[in-house]
């Protein structure tokens, strides 16, 4: 038996909206520690890792580890039916191939029950080591989204260069070139407005912009985004979900043949 209650159904809706274009089907792994999902996009260039800790839920019960394969577009269809301030309760048991989403209005006057068919998904589960990165940049998530969208209108790839003074995003295309340089900015009123650059050694990597633009769909989930880079390693783009977990996107760099 699995049962979990979230104060805001809108949070899960937003999470699924931010990843469903990248991965259409995925398996949620449920255990005593929480709900996890890890899936590659269909071209196996990027990977999404979602972690929702059990202590971030209002109620969380998982008698034993349990896998729930879901079509994320179908899940999104159901989550869209939740009211803005509805709570969400998820229920599933191994006896039937369904997960139930219960949407309850704040005054408890409306209770909606949606049952989603679960599916068997065969997927590779990858072990991602906790690596030390050469450079870690934290910046407002809206700023990162603006940069990748702006550069996406110039070129297909972005070259990211981190030095101790700044982080540069550069793109080139048929119409010309663009470089956006962000300096470290620590003296801000709100911590989420900071741009923080932690550099062990300088890095310079190139990535496909369309994936980074896709990752930035998660902007509404967190005011700040953390970008971790190491030479010839996948970039990690992390959105922290306050009090419950994170969504991390991994993207392999372009490597010279």
């Amino acid at each position: 038996m699995f049962e979990a209650q979230m104060a805001q159904a809108a949070l899960l809706k937003q999470i699924i909206e931010s990843i469903r274009e990248l991965i259409t089907e995925a398996t949620f792994e449920v255990s005593g520690t929480g709900m996890m999902l890890q899936a590659m996009d269909s071209s196996h260039v990027s990977l999404v890792a979602l972690n929702l800790r059990s202590d971030g839920f209002q109620l969380f019960r998982a008698d034993r580890p349990f896998s729930m394969g879901m079509n994320l577009n179908h899940m999104a269809k159901m989550l869209k039916c939740a009211g803005k301030d509805d709570t969400l309760t998820m229920r599933a048991d191994e006896a039937n191939d369904l997960v139930t989403f219960l949407f309850e209005s704040p005054g408890n006057e409306r209770l909606a029950e949606f049952e989603l068919k679960l599916m068997d998904i065969t997927s590779e589960n990858l072990g991602i080591p906790d690596a030390e990165y050469s450079a870690t940049v934290s910046m407002p998530s809206a700023e990162f989204q603006r940069i990748v969208k702006d550069l996406g209108s110039i070129g297909d790839t972005v070259e990211i260069t981190v030095t101790k003074d700044d982080v540069r995003f550069a793109a080139s295309g048929d119409i010309g070139n663009a470089t956006i340089k962000c300096r470290q900015l620590l003296d801000t009123e709100k911590p989420e407005d900071r741009t923080l650059i932690e550099m062990v050694e300088p890095v310079n990597l190139t990535f496909a912009l369309r994936y980074l633009i896709n990752f930035s769909k998660a902007t509404s989930l967190a005011p700040s985004v953390t970008i971790k880079l190491s030479t010839e390693m996948p970039v990690v783009v992390e959105y922290k979900l306050s009090d419950i977990g994170y969504v991390r996107f991994y993207l392999a760099p372009k490597i010279e043949d």
């Binding site: 590659m40 260039v45 072990g127 390693m233 490597i255």
Partner: peptide, 14 residues
């Protein structure tokens, strides 16, 4: 031109 490697090649299979 630059190649695009498979993301799985960077991680270990479980």
């Amino acid at each position: 031109s630059a190649g695009q490697p498979n993301i799985a090649s960077f991680f270990t299979k479980r």
